[in-house]
Nucleic acid binder design. Structure first.
Lengths: 347, 347
DNA sequence: TGCGTGGACGCAAACGTTTGCGTTGTTGCT
DNA sequence: AGCAACAACGCAAACGTTTGCGTCCACGCA
């Protein structure tokens, strides 16, 4: 508990410096004494005082993860991936919730100077802060963005998910299943992810030539209510699409509700696929196909890069991870057997 | 960035000691100099080096939160509450995932000695570690259990949720709705929460006298599949209950599936209530009533107590927070209007 | 004027490491 | 035998604070 370096030094009849070198595997200490010291250290259960060490080495083995709200289902997996990798690399993980508050975000960055944490993974957009005149450029060596793009020209590295490719996969899947006219129900048009997913969808449809056509595309907010509203309009049109791609699972849930009210059966009458693969889409009357993001890998990769950065490595080129489609009954043209979710992975 | 105490001291033409006292609001420094120092500090954007401070004061303003798996929907809210309170109290939050691995759990405790973190909130049962001979007793001043009971006789404080009262509320609600024979579908019988919830249910039924009767009670695992299996058997009995209390929402989802297959309509033919109030129960064909746990408050309260402990306060008596019922269609005897979840709070 | 008192401040040690440099002792070579 | 070279180790400074104690000065009072 209170075993310090000097005590081991006394017991081993050497100086503290030698003990330090021995335990850190540095040269300049004989083989015999090294063994003796290691034995002694193990015996008294010695654990170095990380703060004292940090004081002289200048960095403390902590990595921060800055998220807007850990309660948002996207982040726990990311946090888990980040923590796992950080732990494997000898770091501990600090969790910072900003609650979308710019002040809390700024506080998070203070940790870099105040607590000398080795680095920060940031999952909240920094553009606003950059616009406020923060020196984002100076952060390039101690920050990596996780799941969100870095501010323009900041030089900060990023690991993100390829939204456009996600859209493409949805488009291709829908075409394969025989749907031909697919509409798009979007979140906020201001958000890049909304637009990217739509573009990906159009990529796929364009590539299919006459086999598929882009249906109407609308935007709104990232909520179930907004999905419901958008879908109601879309399904009332004369040129009603035979499939809908919702930019978000919440939106998709709203679409499902509108479809149900309109008497359309998902899968057979209307194809539907969402995005994010949240738990809830597995338990609707007809389970909803969704695009699963590799949040775990995003976290893991971000932690790996950050640790490398902290150890003095050069920044790597941005990483772009690929999403994966979880196909369920809502997008299978052939009505499958009654929903049997038992094959799904549960928590 | 690199503003240290001595630099301010030089600029103010005083010693570092005076600057330290001035900034920490300690007596022994004149009013004029104090103001001068504060102005200077603000000007150069001084931030004290927490590690150096920690080295002399002996504790670093970090609180650890030890969870088995942040991915489990119970924990993100708890983490949010804990982080919010910790932040308000001047602490930062360390997140430790054990992945149910005893080694990682032990590593977490090493933080107390190695990194001198001020304290740990622990959300994973310690009985096994206690049995392994860890000195749990010595932890009473730097650990509080969050959401799980402390090991017997360890003297460690705990803040938990009153499972038995949760069961009671379910029982009372079901009786009010006119159900009379309620069965119980449990998780692992080894887990205290399973048993407590059942006992609460029986409390309520017993109190109602002849108005209600306890139905069959079975146990299994905390999974959808287990709920399905248990419900199939239970619904096939001649003395089939007219309502089911599932100890878990996953179990409840399984019960819902079994009921659907048996042609029983939730709410009208069979009352159903689950536990945990996870997102998914809002999106089933018929939304499921569930017991919401105040995870956020558990985290918040645990952090408050831990911070108090770290500041030298005496341990308080264990806190027992109350759960809350989220009533939905699955337990309303009068068939409600078609499911309109739009009034629910979304993420 | 002399002394006592207390406020304002400085000195220096301490916290537990790491690390540059100097010293000692041993070995190997000529 | 003498010297160089190198391995093994100790000394002490440094990291940036906090804090006990001592000093100085100004002031009040007799």
């Amino acid at each position: 508990m209170a075993a310090r370096l000097v005590e081991i030094a006394r017991m081993a009849r050497v100086s503290a410096a030698t003990v330090s070198r021995a335990l850190n595997g540095q040269p300049g200490v004989g083989e015999r004494t090294r063994k003796r010291i290691h034995a002694l250290a193990a015996q008294v259960n010695y654990a170095p005082h990380a703060n004292a060490r940090a004081l002289v080495t200048g960095r403390i083995p902590f990595l921060g993860l800055v998220v807007p709200d850990i309660t948002n289902p996207f982040f726990p997996s990311l946090a888990r991936g980040a923590e796992e990798e950080a732990f494997a690399l000898g770091y501990s993980l600090l969790l910072l919730n900003t609650n979308w508050d710019p002040d809390r975000l700024r506080h998070a960055f203070d940790l870099l100077t105040t607590r000398r944490v080795a680095g920060l993974m940031v999952s909240v957009p920094l553009d606003r802060l950059a616009a406020d005149g923060m020196d984002v450029a100076g952060l390039a060596r101690s920050v990596v963005m996780a799941g969100v793009p870095a501010p323009e020209g900041s030089g900060i590295g990023a690991v993100s998910v390829d939204d456009r490719e996600g859209g493409r996969r949805v488009g291709r899947h829908l075409l394969e299943q025989g749907y031909s006219r697919v509409g798009f129900v979007g979140g906020s048009e201001a958000d890049r992810s909304s637009r990217d997913r739509l573009e990906g969808l159009r990529d796929a449809l364009a590539q299919a030539g006459s086999a598929g056509a882009a249906g109407p595309a609308t935007f709104g907010e990232w909520s179930e209510a907004s999905g419901y509203r958008q879908a109601r309009r879309m399904l009332a049109r004369k040129d009603r699409p035979d499939a809908v791609f919702a930019a978000n699972d919440l939106l998709a849930l709203g679409v499902a509700r509108a479809a149900s009210e309109a008497g359309l059966r998902l899968g057979t009458d209307l194809g539907l696929v969402g995005y994010d693969d949240i738990e809830s889409v597995r338990w609707t009357a007809i389970p909803i196909t969704s695009v699963a993001q590799p949040e775990f890998d995003v976290g893991r990769e971000a932690a790996r890069r950050l640790a490398a950065l902290a150890d003095g490595a050069e920044p790597e080129a941005d990483a772009r991870l690929q999403p994966r489609l979880s196909v369920r009954a809502s997008s299978r043209r052939q009505p499958a057997a009654p929903a049997r979710p038992s094959k799904e992975k549960h928590r």
